[in-house]
Design a protein around this nucleic acid. Structure first.
Lengths: 334, 334
DNA sequence: AGAGCATATGTTATCGATGCCATCTCTAAC
DNA sequence: GTTAGAGATGGCATCGATAACATATGCTCT
């Protein structure tokens, strides 16, 4: 009953010995190889239990060349619900498939930082990378780093070698704008996200197209950085323009910033000005006023990215629908 | 100039050959061994550049037994700014120390799910684990899994073997409550977080103690789940009580839910009722009214957890101060 | 009955970096 | 002038799982 070996963790050979089979067979059991008899499998699993065997992923990685790990590049400045949801979707889908998720955050949208993050993940030997930040300029160096690693870019630029998975963000812009037009507004202003973000540009395009389709020339968009502060700043400008009755903000947080600016200038929401956001964050329904907003299923989006990475079969179309949650920040103009 | 080898990635031996040294010396260069001459180091680094050598972390892990990876256990239901900040802090501090971060999310506070997450991280061979969810009942199985892995529990239970790093959350509760008393309120109600969360209990204790110190018997606290919805529900109850003039909510999101409930019942904030939250989320300053709230530096907290994990030297005390941001949701009673 | 084949299992070499020990060259000190 | 010791480097076994190949058994089909 006494342990002969000192502190060493049990390995496959120990399990094999305990089960009366070869190490190779133990390996087969773990990888669900079809050619293992039920009886042998049972014995091996019993031996695993008995020996307290713990799988050594480094050894597997070294000999098989695959790490069963997916790298996820995130933007450090959190607070964006959509990104958090994407992360959860990625982690869950990866976990289901037996993959681990290793994260690398970047502090800002900078190609140098991005290159460093990709290098870090590549050095870890990840089997695939999900880039969950918008990626405009794919540098040659980035392409070199990811040459042997399948990569999916969420809402990224088409210029990279990576495959791109995108939600139809134009739809979000269209839905929001159309809602305001349907209420009777004759013009809709827009506080956009940073122009480096594909999401921001697509939402802006959806807004523009929707207005043009209604025979309306879009006013110049005002660019924010997703933060409430930026919404507030741009809102202050919009509030100085007399005949504004409707604003579409590219995120909920900016929308609340706009609302605050409007109110400080004596413009009531929604009585004088209607506001629509995007994201449907948890607070949207509970702040004052409850925010009309466009909701998208980012969790599913993250999961789809992993699916695309792991089995390159279908998974091609991933048009996640945009749903409008109508609350109390929008009303007909008077 | 032509490559003799087919598709194989260069390894240390290739670098060693190119530099005219042994593989062992190359290894020493990478690990910053003191006993390498500057000249040799230079030659090796040049050879690395020339061969396009990429470090193989699996091989290092197998031979050294250490993975240079830290596991991070997160709660899947995102949206809590504090958790996002902790994550960023962990990732940054780990990255600075040359460590990768592997995440495992759990969908709910359940010991079974927690055990599975810990197993997953252990199987990856992480060198340390940061548990960023509150952990009340540390099971025997959990202790078994983490026996050989240094673990830090943030705000976790003292019953586990893991080291515990905690912010003084009582301070947060005290600061918030004292602010309301200083304004002249005679009683302060409390919407707490879930009782399983240490943060929630500590904040509640701070609130209780502060009231008792002022000779006030605390009313029964109402328990929420951090979400705006739960704040709204409990706020509806509080709004039915006639003489309530001040509420301390254990999170900003719940605070906004309380505010909504108050307003729907005709109680103005802050004229009739004052509200204080905790977290200082980005929206706190931009919603209506701007929220008075207690801010804590969770980013630093995450970084401190990693420091505690990596060098078991100092890092013992980590009393991150709680700062009150006074805005417009609090006022003297009338 | 023997060829042919699928299924189940064992044997051996290998992945790439590192720990340990050996070796060699200097310089400082008595 | 010899020795001790520090500094710089190389040789070799090793970590644990797996791929590739080899073998053994049982079954089907002509």
């Amino acid at each position: 009953m006494s342990q002969a070996r000192p502190m060493r963790n049990p390995n496959m050979a120990d399990v094999a010995a305990a089960a009366g089979v070869s190490a190779q067979t133990v390996s087969r059991v773990f990888r669900d190889s079809p050619n293992v008899s039920p009886e042998t499998r049972r014995r091996v699993l019993a031996a695993v239990e008995k020996t307290g065997y713990r799988f050594n992923s480094a050894a597997r990685m070294l000999s098989s060349g695959r790490s069963h790990t997916i790298g996820l590049v995130l933007l450090q400045s959190g607070g964006y619900y959509s990104r958090a949801a994407v992360t959860a979707g990625v982690e869950h889908a990866a976990g289901e498939a037996g993959y681990a998720v290793s994260i690398a955050t970047i502090a800002a949208l900078d190609t140098g930082l991005m290159e460093r993050s990709l290098t870090k993940l590549a050095d870890q030997g990840v089997d695939g990378i999900v880039i969950a930040v918008p990626l405009l300029h794919a540098t040659q160096k980035m392409a070199d780093i990811t040459r042997d690693i399948p990569t999916v870019t969420l809402d990224g630029s088409r210029t990279s070698d990576a495959r791109v998975l995108g939600i139809d963000q134009q739809e979000a812009g269209r839905v929001a704008t159309q809602h305001l037009l349907d209420l009777g507004h004759r013009q809709v202003w827009h506080v956009s996200g940073p122009d480096e973000w594909i999401e921001a540009r697509q939402r802006r395009q959806g807004w523009e197209e929707c207005l043009r389709a209604a025979g309306i020339e879009p006013p110049p968009p005002l660019e924010g950085d997703w933060s409430p502060e930026s919404g507030y700043r741009q809102g202050q400008i919009i509030a100085m323009i007399p005949d504004v009755t409707a604003v579409f903000a590219a995120s909920d947080e900016m929308a609340f910033g706009v609302i605050r600016a409007m109110r400080e200038r004596g413009r009531a929401v929604p009585d004088d000005v209607s506001i629509v956001g995007v994201d449907d964050i948890a607070l949207a329904a509970y702040c004052s006023p409850p925010l009309t907003t466009v909701r998208q299923d980012f969790y599913r989006f993250g999961a789809a990215a992993v699916a695309l990475l792991l089995d390159d079969a279908g998974a091609g179309d991933s048009v996640v629908p945009a749903t409008l949650s109508v609350r109390e920040s929008t009303a007909p103009p008077h």
